[in-house]
Each structure stands twice: as C-alpha cells, then as structure tokens.
C-alpha cells in the first residue's frame, strides 16, 4: 500500500471534493445562466421567458434605440477616463505616500475612506455637491460671483463627466492602496543602486519600478475594469440617467427593460452585447497573460 501510487482521479481526493461546490457553481450559475441569457435574447419574451424565436429582431431594435447607443458611448467615455485617471492619480498618490512622510497612516485612511461608502451614498453626496441650486455653484455665487456657472449635472453634455468625477473620488483610494502595497515590495537595494548610478527619481519610477510592479498593475486593471462595466448604482443615485437620457449606461438599460418594462428579450439582448464586449476585450488579453509558456515569468 504505501508504495503504490494512488489511482489518478483520486489523487488529491480531498482537494477535489472541496472544489466540487465551486465547480458546480461555476457551471450552473455562470456558464448555465450565460447560455440561458444568450438563448432567450433571440426570443420575443416579455415579462416571462417564452421560447418563441425571432432571430436578430431584439438586436436590431437595440441598435436602433438612441438610449442604448447613448449608453454605450457613455460607458466608453466613463471607462477610458476612469481607467486612465484612477491609475495615474492612484499611482502618483501612492508614490507621494511612499516618501516616508509623516502621518502616512492618517492620509492613507483619508484617501481610502471613500471606498468604504456605497456607490449610492457617493452618488447622493456628489449630486448635492454639484446641484446648481445648493451645491458649489450656489456657494461661489453667494461669495459674490453672481454669474458663476458650474452645472455639470444639469447640462446634458457634461453629466457623464460629473459621474466620472464621483467615480474617481470613490475608486482612486483603492488603487492607491494597491499601488502602495506594490511599491513596498520593491527592494530598497534597487533604490540605492539607482541613486548610486545618479538616475533621477522619476526615471527610476517609470523605467524600473513600474515594470517591476506589473503583477500589481494587472490586478488593479482587472478590478477597475470590472467596476467600470457594471457601473449602475452611481448613475442611479446621481442622475437616474438624466437629464433626459444623457447619462444612461448599459447596465441600467438592461435592468429597466427586464424588470420595469417587462421586455425580457430586449434586456437579455442588451446584456448579451455587454458580455460580448467584455469577452472581446478579455479573451485576447487572457490568452496572452495566462498562456502556459509564461509560467516562468513574473506574472502568474
């Protein structure tokens, strides 16, 4: 017995048993529900799912709908801006914090605090701050600048940027914390070596430290990207998609169509498009990042 190798499927038997619930969840909830969603997006389902196939009708209507197209455009704006700015601001804040400053803990807490709030709270707070009747605009006007205009929220063209600002306020702290953790893993010797060679600090950051922090950047990117695609609550709290349809986002379209307008088919078609978009971006990246030959490299 002791010398006999166990039968292959039984190797690590306990670990496999332990993984069964997770595997089942993945298969049933993620894969199963995704397939269900895709199948029913080709039907004429209203409040209740029915298997009455109508081809691409739902998709045709989807891309004819102004609201959906506005929502896609908004997601793109929000996505690009919050990705770029939260990474840049987050990294700069982390680099500043890493200068062995005093009260670092206090600052870190302050910057991280917004992340502890729910998006609903953030949204309401920023709605109040930006509302023209009692927010920044009113305060500045009361100071004597009568013609001061700061109406991000009520001007259809800029509303999405107001949401970007609120999103950044909420999310940058977390990015900073992750980056700071990454910076702390960098060996002090590297800094010393760079200093001996007379390389300026910013160059050290850009050409040495950032490439070394690649795994941290990847993790952060995934976290931010996931948050971007599912943006919903912030918009609901801040503008509810308004003024008009100026700040609609895809997730809100899906929810409204599925639950308050009783058009399941249309909602599922929209969520299928969301999923497809994510896959188009994610699959090539995942293939590159996780291909087996990369095992020896820094990123896991």
């Amino acid at each position: 017995m002791p010398n006999k190798r166990p039968f292959a499927p039984l190797r690590n038997f306990n670990a496999k048993v332990a993984a069964v619930p997770m595997i089942a969840t993945v298969l049933v909830v993620f894969v199963g529900c995704t397939l269900w969603t895709v199948v029913y997006s080709f039907t004429s389902s209203r409040s209740l799912p029915v298997l009455d196939f109508v081809g691409f009708d739902q998709y045709e209507r989807l891309f004819r709908t102004t609201r959906w197209n506005v929502a896609l455009k908004n997601l793109a704006i929000y996505g690009v801006l919050s990705l770029v700015f939260s990474l840049v601001i987050g990294f700069i804040l982390a680099a500043l914090m890493d200068q062995k400053i005093r009260f670092e803990n206090t600052f870190r807490t302050i910057f991280l605090y917004p992340h502890a709030l729910s998006f609903i709270v953030t949204g309401l707070a920023w709605q109040w701050i930006l509302a023209p009747t009692f927010g920044i605009q009113k305060v500045v006007r009361d100071l004597g600048f009568e013609t001061f205009e700061f109406s991000l929220l009520t001007n259809s063209r800029y509303t999405i940027y107001a949401i970007v600002i609120a999103g950044l306020w909420q999310g940058t702290g977390l990015v900073m914390a992750l980056m700071l953790a990454g910076l702390r893993t960098v060996d002090d010797e590297i800094w010393k070596a760079a200093r001996v060679d007379g390389i300026p600090a910013w160059k050290t950051y850009v050409f040495i430290i950032i490439p070394m922090m690649r795994p941290v950047f990847v993790t952060t990117l995934v976290i931010i990207a996931a948050a971007i695609v599912k943006i919903y609550d912030l918009v609901v709290a801040m503008t509810n998609g308004g003024p008009g349809i100026a700040s609609e986002v895809p997730a809100k379209y899906v929810y409204d169509l599925m639950f308050s307008r009783g058009n399941l088919g249309q909602g599922l078609a929209a969520s299928t498009i969301m999923l497809t978009t994510v896959l188009i971006i994610l699959v090539p990246w995942a293939l590159m990042e996780f291909r087996p030959t990369n095992r020896k490299g820094g990123a896991k």
């Binding site: 102004t66 609201r67 259809s156 003024p243 308050s260 058009n263």
Partner: peptide, 19 residues
C-alpha cells in the same frame, strides 16, 4: 400601452425635454 411602449415614449419625452 404595454409597459415597454410606455418606456419608449418616456425615453423619447425625457430626451426631448432635456435636450
């Protein structure tokens, strides 16, 4: 109107009102 149609009208009217 079905709630779907009502929703479409609402999208249009609010868009028009705001823009």
């Amino acid at each position: 109107f079905s709630s779907d149609t009502q929703g479409q009208i609402e999208d249009l009217s609010t868009e028009f009102f705001a823009d």
